[in-house]
Amino acid sequence: MDNNKLATKPHYPILDGLRGVAALIVVCFHLCEPLATSHLTQLVNHGYLAVDFFFLLSGFVIGYAYNDRWNKLTIGGFLRRRFERLQPLVVLGMTFGAIGFYFTDSSIWPLIHTIPLWKLLLVTLIGYTLLPIPLSMDIRGWQEMHPLNSVGWSLFFEYIANILYAVGLRKLSIKGLFIFVFIAAVVLFHFVLTNSRGDVAGGWTLNWEHMRIGLTRTIYPFFAGLLLSRVAKPVSIRNAFLWCSLLIVAVLLMPRIGGANHLWMNGLYEAICIVFIFPCIVYLGASGVIQKQAESKVCKFLGDLSYPLYMVHYPLVYFYVAWVSDHKGITLVQAWPYALLTLIGSIILAYISLKWYDEPVRAWLRKKLK
């Protein structure tokens, strides 16, 4: 059976636009991060929750796209389609990271001076597969499973969720899926209320602690999105893109709650966002009606840009982090022109990557993987 012959379903354009809004906030989070004195004083304090929002969006969209197609679709066909969608930009992002590796030399990464070229090439090749590297192969010194493009960790867990969905969890009934999602929510609440940081940040290191965080952050939102795709009955809501965008901005820019003395309060906030608020935003976005052509164009542009921006911005952020680190005590007022330049550069690089690389490569893969 030719799995590429499946008809393409209409997109939810507002959800595409919301993915772009969240991606822009991720970039801003990474630009503000090196200016903070600790994780308690980040300006874009909950920007990392955008990843959890991405997981929920992914579960919803995949459920919408594939739940009623498995009579015509094999597991291999589904995974090929996900590979075609995700992997080209994984390779490009790792390549950009490798090209810039030695040029991001800074006192914050003294290990860079000691890394031979063969080891950089080996880590690059492993990065292309998204397999996590062990700590013994860390070439940057940040204990990342993907030291050439830090954001690769979330794609690793995205693939895990996709595989779990394809090989069995898609077969759960609505009741069975609800029970599974409820258990995942309890696990998430327990984790954020009891861990030593009072948040869900983590998942990028190949050790037990970060693997637990990564799976906890992935399983609930992805399969909650899948459940939502089955049970939601969208209605017609005007100005949904505007209201949902404002909600995302408010949630992700919320200052740290509870401080160092009441960490559980911030954990509770993040769990409520992931378990309740994000599904509501996705439901509202799926129910939204686009009334103006300008809004449609904005949503399409942001949607098209979202994944390339997420995958190629961090190699540029490495340069920015190196600059900030070599100028101790620099303030936001002093750093904002460089941060803005990095943001604009990331958007331009993402758009070029989309048009000159991602779209042509995916078209080629569709032909080759038939």
Rank of each mutant, 00 (worst) to 15 (best):
P234E: 12
L56K: 02
A350E: 09
D52H: 11
V27E: 02
Y102V: 09
N195R: 06
G214W: 01
F301T: 12
A7L: 11
A339H: 07
V200W: 01
L49D: 03
D138W: 09
L354V: 13
L43Y: 14
G198I: 05
L35C: 07
G345A: 11
G168S: 13
V123I: 15
L263Y: 03
I99K: 14
I348G: 04
F178S: 13
V275Q: 00
T205G: 02
H39R: 10
N45I: 08
V90Q: 05
R140Y: 08
E270G: 00
V282S: 01
I174Q: 04
W204G: 01
S245G: 14
Y320H: 03
K175I: 13
T205E: 07
A232G: 04
L349R: 02
L215E: 01
I274E: 00
V235Q: 10
H46S: 12
S38Q: 13
Y128P: 01
L343A: 06
G59Q: 08
S150R: 06
W364T: 11
A161F: 05
L305I: 11
A350I: 13
W118F: 09
S245E: 05
N149A: 10
F53K: 01
K9Q: 04
G20Q: 09
A98W: 07
K297R: 14
S353V: 15
A294C: 06
L130T: 15
N266P: 03
R366Y: 05
N266E: 08
L343Y: 02
N162G: 08
N207K: 05
G202M: 06
P308S: 14
W243R: 08
R170L: 11
E359C: 04
F78Q: 07
I160R: 02
Q143P: 00
T129A: 12
A7D: 11
G141W: 13
W264V: 09
A250D: 11
